[in-house]
Design a protein around this nucleic acid. Structure first.
Length: 980
DNA sequence: GTGGTCTCCTA
DNA sequence: GTAGGAGACCACA
């Protein structure tokens, strides 16, 4: 080794674990030997070898070694017997792969280094030191922070997965200190995965700051007395020895004896035949092909190597008969039409068909040219059915770029059309002279594909079937295609099986439930966390398996689920309440709502200032620095250190510190709890709203939420990323956030909301004469209730009496319990029980309704809204009393909440058409359960308000004619706060 | 990094 | 007492 030489040291053990976790469990096809980690390892190593052959980069290695840990006990265990004591044994299916991976390294003709009693890190440290001494450079291929201490002149760390090279500046950026202080930093912080203790309460941020202030660990420990923060000071003093021990544990040994001298690590030209023989034996076809191409060796000429593996695990045999086994009764093409005359028969036959289904990934097509695409889509013209699914590079349909589309025309007949795939090697490939096409194969140009797809996706004679179609609809909408007509398996499932106990209506879940098949998960394809990579950079063959399978599964689900709609009388729910709402919501999401960034940032500033003041006061009152955001620490301060009374415990056995508890303490005259309450409120508003909302804004200053149509049991929508259905309104400070929701120049925001819709629906369903009368007369319903219950005249009623009645009214809707009402009103449970009894005496119809609903739910297993939406409560017959009671309350609430949800859905579905017909340009932007927000041109506000109110008020008609009026308040203003 | 717990925002 | 989503913290890998 001499000046100018370059040593690559691969942290092999870390590599193995990354490869293992990055890839789905894979087995060798012929004998079931687990080879997932081997495969990942070989791919990574090959990429590295390939990169290093590229001399143009100027970092090509002259020396190369792969370093492994040899055993679990090292000299560090003599220093500290707990070192790495919390490590668990490697996964069972990984163990047999260790030996194979060493074989792999030898097949690559690379030195494979390990030594008893030392960790790979020590070997790496020693080789690094020697190489630098000899005048060479070193690249350590790893991202382990334990190795950061080695970074310095001539030494960098290379994170291959992220394609990142770390020098001293990058280490500083990541950890706040330069590499030479990494050891001290690690000694302070400790390492949970290696069981290095460190100093309690010191994290990376604090450690970096301390080292910055005091220079090094020893100085810091000697001068610990000077530290202001009490807890920090105490810990540094108490745990000084522990820090010194930690330092010795994390310090790498760079002078260990080496069995293989540095100069023997000279890099050889890989022996193509040896490598290919090994890869063939492993049955890594793709990598074999790639290696063969690069090294110019014909893979078919090379004989497969004999790999000795002890006791390969044999997987279950595929049943070759399964595919040809006759489908269940009635599923045959001959029998089906006859049986299908009755919906229930069709349901049965389709169930049989689904149960007999088998999936063959290798049968899926990858379509790479226009002609093939046209041919495939022509099959849909024949059948009239086309399942389709889009793959994009982002989770949200509003941001995602189209990467590919997949189709299925009949069970098992599916294809994937890659459109926006890129090289799996990312930027590294810019340096090679191979074009993307040469590397990953041809793709149809996006515009060409869209031109072919448009007439099909818009063809009224072809039913497009999707799963969560709002996503695909939006993606295509952004490419100028309006998908129609369509069916949505998620929405069908939701209409059929909305249930409190079933978890959801996602495709994977439905597939397992109805097809008995677990599809390839997105994680399997693209990995997760740090190993995640964009789908566009995944191997197209694998994406085909994944994406075409999704379309195939969707089509099969559609075949099983659709007949049930008619058979179970739920077609109208699906056709009238679900399907037509999807495009409406898609358009609302696409529009987004305009937000004033300045207002939010001003609020953030104001909140931050108050927050800072409060933090100082809190520390003062507590007598020490602590994190007021940690309920655990707060509980210890309040009830432990300060010894305040009235502590309650939560489920987790900790002190409860919610607002109620804190307010009780405040009422007793303690100053700290009220400061905490105030701090929490500000932190919440700042952290959840004013700081976060700007991150969701697009270039035009608009926020696009995403509505989920199938994630509540009752039929309500939910909103996420961001959730715009929980923007504060209760407090003045919170309401200020709503002033940031604005309309652009020349327009106003209109908010229209139903007044007391759930109580009105309750009055109608339970048929309560007094309530109905009060609504007809337009009285104050809570005051009326109070008057009935407590005999207090409405005129001059004390606000507290009305407040109680209001709480009871809400309680009824929620399936009242004495416990809950007592909690809400902060009164004894006996008193709450008394109120409830009196309520039932005054309004006996309510009790009848509740009893009847419970009985219905027990008998049928579900309850229904006025529009026929069903919500299932299988657990209402649970032997567990509290679970039963919970289901009873939910069953009482669901028809009320669900009917209200149905009503506003109907209004939304009709709204666009009505506005259109009236020649109004108002655009619906948001829904918040009983409120709709519109953007309206200034000069149309006057005409829009009454129309919107009318559509909303008349939404139940003609299907349901409520015996109470629905009242809608509509208002226009410059921002949401003023319009509400 | 992931998942659970706690807290808090809405109708 | 109903129905949601989300951020922060913390223990576990």
């Amino acid at each position: 080794m001499k000046k100018g030489d370059h040593l690559f040291l691969v942290d092999g053990s870390a590599y193995i674990f990354r490869a293992y976790h990055a890839l789905p469990p894979l087995t060798r096809k012929s004998d079931g030997l687990p080879v997932g980690a081997v495969s990942g390892f070989c791919n990574m190593l090959w990429k590295l070898v390939e990169e290093s052959r590229d001399t143009s980069v100027g970092v090509a290695p002259t020396h190369f070694a792969v370093i492994f840990d040899h055993s679990s006990t090292t000299f560090r265990n003599e220093l500290y017997d707990q070192y790495k004591a919390n490590r668990t044994a490697p996964p069972e299916d990984l163990v047999p792969q260790f030996a194979v991976i060493r074989e792999a390294v030898r097949a690559f003709d690379l030195p494979c280094i390990e030594k008893q009693g030392y960790e790979a890190d020590d070997l790496i440290a020693t080789y690094t030191k020697q190489a630098i001494a000899a005048g060479g450079d070193v690249t350590i291929v790893s991202s382990d922070k334990d190795l950061m201490q080695l970074v310095g002149p001539g030494v960098i760390l290379y994170d291959q997965m992220k394609d990142k090279r770390l020098g001293p500046e990058e280490v500083k950026e990541k950890f706040g200190v330069y590499p030479e202080k990494m050891i001290d930093l690690q000694a302070l912080v400790g390492d949970t995965s290696d069981n290095v203790p460190g100093v309690p309460g010191i994290g990376p941020k604090t450690a970096a700051q301390l080292l910055d202030d005091y220079g090094d660990l020893e100085t810091l420990l000697e001068r610990a007395e000077e530290i202001k923060q009490a807890k920090r000071r105490e810990n540094l003093i108490a745990f000084a020895e522990q820090a010194r021990l930690s330092k010795r544990l994390v310090t790498l040994d760079c002078d260990m004896p080496l069995d293989t001298p540095l100069d023997d690590l000279f890099l050889n030209e890989p022996d193509g035949e040896k490598l290919i023989a090994f890869l063939k034996a492993m049955e890594f076809t793709t990598l074999t092909r790639r290696v063969a191409a690069t090294l110019a060796v014909s893979a078919s000429d090379v004989e497969t190597a004999k790999i000795d593996v002890d006791a390969p695990v044999r997987g279950p045999d595929l049943d070759p008969a399964a595919a040809s086994r006759p489908a269940a009764v009635g599923a045959g093409e001959d029998g089906a039409p006859r049986l299908a005359l009755v919906p229930a028969m069709l349901v049965e036959s389709r169930k049989g068909e689904a149960a007999a289904a088998s999936f063959d990934h290798s049968a899926y097509l990858t379509i790479r040219d226009e002609a093939a695409l046209r041919d495939f889509l022509a099959e849909a013209t024949e059948t009239g059915i086309l399942a389709f699914d889009t793959e994009t590079d982002a989770l949200s349909a509003m941001n995602g770029k189209l990467v590919g589309v997949s189709f299925a025309v009949s069970p098992g007949r599916a294809a994937y059309v890659p459109l926006g795939h890129v090289s799996p090697n990312g930027e590294a490939d810019l340096l090679s002279d191979k074009s993307v096409e040469e590397e990953i194969g041809p793709q149809i140009p996006l515009e060409t594909a869209l031109a072919v797809l448009k007439p099909v996706l818009e063809d009224p004679a072809i039913l497009k079937v999707g799963q969560n179609t709002k996503y695909d609809y939006l993606v295509m909408l952004r490419h100028g295609i309006v998908v129609a007509p369509f069916d949505d398996t998620m929405l069908i499932s939701y209409a059929l099986d909305a249930s409190a106990s079933l978890s959801g209506h996602g495709m994977d879940e439905l597939s397992e439930r109805f097809l008995g098949h677990k599809p390839i998960s997105f994680k399997d394809l693209c990995g997760s966390g740090r190993n995640a990579r964009p789908i566009a950079a995944c191997e197209i063959e694998r994406v085909t398996h994944y994406a075409a399978e999704d379309a195939d599964v969707t089509l099969r689900l559609w075949r099983v689920l659709t007949p049930r709609l008619a058979a179970e009388g739920l077609a109208s729910v699906y056709e009238r309440l679900e399907k037509p709402l999807m495009p409406v919501l898609a358009r609302m999401e696409e529009r987004g709502i305009m937000v004033d960034r300045q207002i939010l940032s001003r609020l953030s500033g104001r909140f931050a200032q108050k927050q800072g003041g409060l933090e100082a006061e809190i520390a003062e009152l507590a007598g020490e620095e602590f994190n007021p955001g940690s309920p655990k620490q707060l509980g210890e301060i309040l009830f432990g250190k300060l010894g305040l009374p009235g502590g309650k415990k939560t489920k987790g056995g900790q002190w409860s510190t919610d607002v109620k508890v804190l307010e009780e303490l405040a009422a007793e005259g303690h100053p700290l709890p009220s400061k905490i309450v105030e701090w929490r409120q500000l932190t919440k508003l700042k952290g959840t709203y004013t700081d976060t909302l700007p991150n969701h804004m697009d270039q035009r200053g608009r926020i696009h939420t995403s509505y989920s149509m199938a994630s509540t049991t009752t039929g309500r929508l939910s909103s996420s990323e961001p959730n715009l259905q929980n923007i504060p309104v209760r407090t003045e400070e919170g309401r200020a956030i709503r002033t940031a929701f604005v309309a652009p120049e020349g327009k106003k925001l209109v908010s229209a909301d139903y007044s007391q819709i759930e109580l009105r629906i309750l009055a109608h369903i339970a048929d309560i004469p007094q309530l109905k009368q009060a609504f007809v007369e337009g009285l104050d319903i809570h005051a009326m209730t109070a008057s009935e219950m407590f005999g207090v005249p409405v005129e001059g009623m004390p606000s507290d009496v009305r407040r109680r009645a209001k709480a009871i009214n809400f309680g009824i809707i929620y399936g009242i319990s004495a416990f809950g009402l007592a909690n809400q009103l902060a009164i004894p449970r006996e008193e709450a029980g008394l109120y409830i009894r009196r309520y039932f005496e005054r309004f006996p119809g309510i009790r009848d309704y509740m009893d009847a609903t419970k009985a219905f739910a027990k008998q049928h297993g579900y309850v229904e809204t006025l529009f026929g939406r069903r919500v299932h409560y299988p657990d209402i017959k649970s032997p567990n009393a509290s679970m039963r009671a919970f289901n009873e309350r939910a069953a009482i609430n669901a028809p009320i909440q669900g009917t209200a949800a149905d009503v506003i859905r109907r209004a939304m579905i009709r709204m666009e058409g009505a506005l259109d017909e009236a020649g109004l340009a108002a655009k619906m932007l948001l829904q918040v359960h009983d409120e709709l927000i519109f953007e309206v041109p200034d000069d149309e506000v006057e005409a829009t308000l009454p129309l919107v109110a009318k559509i909303m008020a008349e939404a139940p008609l003609p299907r349901v004619n409520l015996s109470v009026p629905l009242v809608v308040d509509a208002k226009a203003a410059d921002n949401w706060e003023a319009a509400h």
